[in-house]
Design a protein around this nucleic acid. Sequence first.
DNA 1: ATTAGAATTAAGAGTTTTTTAAGAAATAAA
DNA 2: TTTATTTCTTAAAAAACTCTTAATTCTAAT
Lengths: 219, 219
Amino acid sequence: MNKILIIEDDFNIRNMVNDLLIANQYITVLASGGKEALDLHTKSIDLILLDLMLPQIHGKDLIKKLKEIHDCPILIVSAITDVEMKVNVFDLGADDYITKPFQGKELLARIKLALRHNGKEKIIKYKDIKLDTEKYSAICNEKNLELTKTEFEILNLLILNKGQIVTKSILFDEIWNTKDSADENTLNVHISKLRNKLKIANNLEEYIETIWKIGYKLK
Amino acid sequence: MNKILIIEDDFNIRNMVNDLLIANQYITVLASGGKEALDLHTKSIDLILLDLMLPQIHGKDLIKKLKEIHDCPILIVSAITDVEMKVNVFDLGADDYITKPFQGKELLARIKLALRHNGKEKIIKYKDIKLDTEKYSAICNEKNLELTKTEFEILNLLILNKGQIVTKSILFDEIWNTKDSADENTLNVHISKLRNKLKIANNLEEYIETIWKIGYKLK
DNA sequence: ATTAGAATTAAGAGTTTTTTAAGAAATAAA
DNA sequence: TTTATTTCTTAAAAAACTCTTAATTCTAAT
């Protein structure tokens, strides 16, 4: 789960963005101005949303320091009129630039992009399963799953498409890079092994659902 | 094997991408600018990589025309500074957006994804029924229909020909690949099951109409 | 009213999937 | 290189599910 720092003086915008991010599984930290932001003791910030027009300090004067402290992507959020200032925020270290007013969807897309680019969006979750695609570790119900590489990749693909059916051809394509499966049963066996390990970790949950003749999905 | 058109003015990037794609079993066609790209006689392009910042014509002005000519997914490749332009390329018909600099692995992943979706919307609708032929999901009246593969295919065929009569021979041909029906009644049973599931999802609507002696149609 | 076509139901046939176990292949260690 | 260990694939039997068949009831057309 990614932690995002919102630096924005306008009460309404701050709360609107905050609600949006929380609704989309982000953890938020709020600051209404530059001083507040720099004084923060919170560590492990994954991304910063920075308003340019702040009361005391101008946003552009914060970029460098924030980058030093947190070493994470900084997205500039600025009113359209600010563009006239022609500050080259990118030279100062900003990673993206969003003009107000913006669509929530757009903001989310940019955040996702920045996080992926930064290589930090590496932990994915489903129910009580946590996958760390960086370390190849899989945890279910607080217990380590000890998955093999293929098992991990299958589970990863299923979680990335949670709620949707993942067809067998997609699985073969992604895991084995072949449209025509060498042996259809290979996949079955891996799924079986996977279900076994999940069951050992958490007996009470059913994770992988079979879609007869088509593929699998996570409920 | 898929053919990819690369529209990019920067010589180095163009070649880098070209090498990457060739190494990954793609056929490439290169264009250094908009005019060149539009004048191409090459047909059957499967995907286009389009740089936004081109010398003569801006990339965004190409999207619509390219889409018309080739009818394939278009992936926008843009330097991070271009973001300032804030053109909504998605509204113009682009299918994905990749910011430079990018990892080769990421580009390949995006291409693969786009090719799979083929840039065409795979969701078809009829009244309150929504079919996603990619994910094999069928929703009616906000409820999941849980169709079997054959049921799904029948409904899919009916919706694709909504308003028209779908003859039994067409149904047998498309679903079972046989002109001569093994047993005419098999189809009746499937239709019956299908109507049942639709009725459970939405009792108020009548979807499938019987055309005596000929086939079925959606009203 | 009669009759052929269509719908419904239930059950068995036929497939697909799951599970188990063992051998092959790949990876790591000696 | 050889040996040991782990992971993947193959195979075969068991289980689960879907499709088809068949018998019966219902419906539309003449």
